[in-house]
């Protein structure tokens, strides 16, 4: 079972590495939104520092959303998705590997890049570790939940719009707890409750989402 998991993960990471343009898209989007925001609103440090938690979290969320449409698309089109589903190994592990690969190539780089952009928005330095931590806890949830919508819509021509409609309501709790944890950190308030809730959402999505992803993929391939 683990052999198939590692094979899927290794293959997806290798494919992402070979298609570096696709890999850079969400990161560039993240950087551009955060960079342009002060130009469009105000460059005042106090003002930006207040808005930074929300801006960084919304940008990261939209950047993660950007690459969801292509998560299973090429596999569906070239037939390797149905071959994965025909494996006698668990489809659950395959789905988990795909979502994890999405996070490693999208969410993790966003979380690692965030401190640099946080400085640009004058986020107080004591809130930066909390920002990184919330992104490390929250973005995997975005990948796992987003993968369900991606799997449901993989067989549709205009699935991208539908993905946004399906996942944004499910992303809202992650956004609320992620951004408010960073906000609390800037004010010196406790953040442990927010982090615990983000952690709980992460555990639930990692455990449960692969069932839904695998079932959705089987349904999409069957239709």
């Amino acid at each position: 079972m683990l052999r198939a998991f590692w094979a899927e993960l290794k293959r997806d990471l290798l494919l992402s590495f070979r298609r570096r343009g696709d890999l850079l898209n969400p990161l560039l989007f993240f950087v551009m939104v955060v960079t342009l925001f002060p130009l469009g609103v105000s460059p005042a440090a106090d003002f930006l520092a207040k808005l930074a938690p929300g801006v960084l979290w919304v940008s990261a969320l939209l950047a993660a959303l950007l690459s969801l449409d292509s998560l299973f698309k090429s596999d569906y089109e070239d037939g390797t998705l149905e071959q994965s589903l025909l494996s006698s190994e668990s489809n659950y592990m395959m789905a988990m590997a795909r979502a994890l690969a999405h996070w490693l190539t999208t969410g993790l780089p966003l979380a690692l890049l965030a401190p640099l952009l946080a400085l640009m928005l004058f986020l107080p330095s004591e809130a930066v570790p909390v920002l990184v931590l919330t992104l490390l806890l929250g973005t995997p949830t975005l990948s796992f939940v987003g993968a369900i919508a991606s799997a449901l819509t993989v067989g549709l021509n205009k699935g991208g719009v539908l993905i946004s409609l399906l996942v944004i309501p499910l992303y809202i709790p992650v956004l609320i707890f992620g951004a408010s944890a960073v906000q609390n950190a800037t004010l010196g308030l406790p953040v442990s409750a927010h982090l615990a809730i983000l952690g709980a959402m992460l555990i639930m999505s990692v455990v449960l989402a692969p069932f839904a992803i695998a079932a959705s993929l089987r349904m999409s391939v069957s239709s």
């Binding site: 590692w6 094979a7 899927e8 494919l15 070979r18 090429s74 390797t80 071959q83 494996s87």
Partner: peptide, 20 residues
């Protein structure tokens, strides 16, 4: 049913891992 960005060997190696 092969990935364009992988070599022939890499594609077959992936198959060998998912189809025991």
């Amino acid at each position: 049913s092969v990935k364009q960005a992988l070599t022939a060997r890499e594609n077959l190696s992936w198959y060998a891992n998912i189809q025991p």
